[in-house]
Design a protein around this nucleic acid. Structure first.
Lengths: 195, 195
DNA sequence: TTATTTAGCTAACAAATGTTAGGTAGGAGG
DNA sequence: CCTCCTACCTAACATTTGTTAGCTAAATAA
């Protein structure tokens, strides 16, 4: 089972919420907007979720689940550092492209979470990026990567990966795997062919 | 004169708005929040700006001015492609670090602009990124850069640069120039020392 | 002096917000 | 049959929203 199971109606609500939160932003989407898109009254949503905040939290949290599930097995594998990082990048981009709306919300709307969820979000996200960071550190220790600050390098990688959510199209020229591999190529081997 | 001049009070309002829009987001910041932070009444803001939207627009537009002013002379210079791109990257990061709040609003809050400003924003931003894109294309034509799709490479560069607004601290370890040069190093020469 | 502009105020507006209370219709399980 | 649960409804709530109207006092220009 990929991610925690949920009733049919609840996941319909999530799907619509992800789409609208992505399109207009969390704050610019009213509970009535969500209800309209679902063909119900605003108050009826509260039979399924206790608050608007809970919907946002559920979206963010399930998306985090997807990310962890995708890269954990690779991170724990015995692969060579460079191959490991490449595979993690491809897997990470895969999650984004398979969950475009949810990941856009994950990356852009988390700051509107109410406390203490906002803190919980930050902790999960830091833990996740820590997995990438550990691999980068290993690469530096192995003298495989340039000795830039490991946090700096990791952030640079993450930003290049995460930005894909703004422009990826399922019907675009590049497949998710191609994007992941190109990104890994640029980030690991550099844009310049010969120095 | 760097950017279009403005009355003292108007730029105070902009400064406060940039900070709050960055911290809480445009939609989560009410006109009364701005007024409170400025020590005035909400209605008084309308002596200076016609609407909340106009404030957002002014922030975004002046930030765009800064970006264009910083890189245009470099783009129009006769520098060698690789050096030109490096200098543009450093200059771009410089604008971000010198205008942290404004650039955060520029990157994150533009989608809340009302039409037709939103379209106007998109056009300016496309024009700006087009300047980077042209240099990337030249590098590919010169066989200097790998033959990835030019749009793809440009987006990857821009995303790595623009993300700096989320973590840069004036009192951090790295100066703006160092960040720009490291980024140029990673993006142009790659993270890997030897292939 | 007088006239005009600037920068702020109070009071109010209609609309929209998230949420709750309390109800109803229909199906399932005993 | 009766009871309970699910999934929705209507109606209302207290707040908050961006914005306008109309005013005052001080500074500036003629």
């Amino acid at each position: 089972m990929a991610v925690k199971a949920i009733s049919e109606r609840k996941s319909q609500i999530l799907l619509v919420s992800e789409a609208l939160f992505n399109q207009r932003g969390y704050m610019a989407t009213s509970v009535r907007d969500l209800a309209d898109a679902l063909g119900m009254e605003a108050a009826s949503l509260y039979s399924h979720y206790k608050s608007k905040d809970e919907i946002l939290w559920t979206i963010a949290n399930r998306c985090a689940d997807e990310f962890f599930e995708a890269i954990s097995p690779i991170a724990e594998s015995g692969l060579h550092t460079q191959k490991k990082l490449t595979d993690m990048i491809v897997a990470h981009v895969g999650v984004i492209t398979r969950n475009i709306d949810a990941s856009a919300v994950f990356f852009r709307e988390w700051r509107h979470l109410a406390e203490p969820r906002r803190v919980a979000y930050a902790e999960r996200r830091n833990a996740y990026e820590g997995i990438f960071r550990a691999v980068v550190r290993k690469g530096i220790e192995e003298n495989l990567f340039k000795n830039y600050d490991e946090g700096f390098s990791t952030r640079t990688i993450m930003s290049a990966l995460n930005w894909t959510h703004t422009w990826y199209r399922a019907d675009g020229e590049l497949s998710s795997e191609e994007i992941g591999e190109h990104l890994a190529g640029i980030l690991l081997n550099g844009l310049v062919r010969t120095v």
